[in-house]
């Protein structure tokens, strides 16, 4: 039996696939990510200002307060099934801000609750967000070591 019945090769087929696969529309995608992402950052600024002016926090604590508030808001919107719709519309506009990090932790915890409290909720919290922490902390430690040994 001829092993290759379809007389074509992977290079040609890959080219053909690219020709026939529609690309995502660039303009509307970028615009949606831009305005939603911008709005989330503006909201963060507003919460931070509330922290400074009304709660007498210093700038760094106010920034943390803004992060915690946005994370809480995201967790709630994820729970009631709204955040994935925002994500579908805005893409990177909602996952690049801290809201995306929060959604990446809440959504698997919610989804895998049926698999139990330890291996379901406990472990799955970090399936998507884990790598972000691993490489973020890893990079900061490398920077810290270089800073301590050569710069400081």
């Amino acid at each position: 039996m001829d092993k290759q019945r379809i007389h074509t090769n992977p290079q040609h087929y890959s080219w053909l696939t690219d020709q026939l696969s529609p690309p995502s529309p660039l303009g509307s995608g970028l615009f949606q990510a831009f305005w939603v992402g911008g709005l989330i950052c503006m909201l963060g600024q507003a919460i931070s200002d509330i922290g400074v002016h009304l709660l007498d926090l210093n700038a760094r604590d106010a920034s943390t307060f803004a992060s915690i508030s946005l994370i809480f808001l995201t967790a709630l919107l994820t729970g009631i099934g709204v955040f994935d719709k925002i994500g579908k519309y805005a893409g990177a506009g909602s996952f690049v801000p801290i809201t995306g990090f929060a959604n990446a932790m809440v959504s698997p915890a919610l989804e895998f609750r049926r698999e139990g409290l330890v291996l379901g909720v406990g472990a799955k919290l970090f399936t998507i967000a884990g790598p972000v922490l691993v490489y973020g902390v890893g990079a900061s430690v490398i920077y810290g070591l270089i800073y301590a040994l050569f710069i400081h």
Binding site: P23, S24, L26, G29, L30, F31, Q32, A33, F34, W35, V36, G37, G38, L39, I40, C41, M42, G44, A90, G91, A92, G93, F95, V96, P97
Partner: peptide, 14 residues
């Protein structure tokens, strides 16, 4: 903030 997000979206789309 919007620009940083739009740059991420460019990576998603392309």
């Amino acid at each position: 903030g919007g620009a940083i997000c739009a740059a991420g979206e460019l990576l998603v789309l392309r």
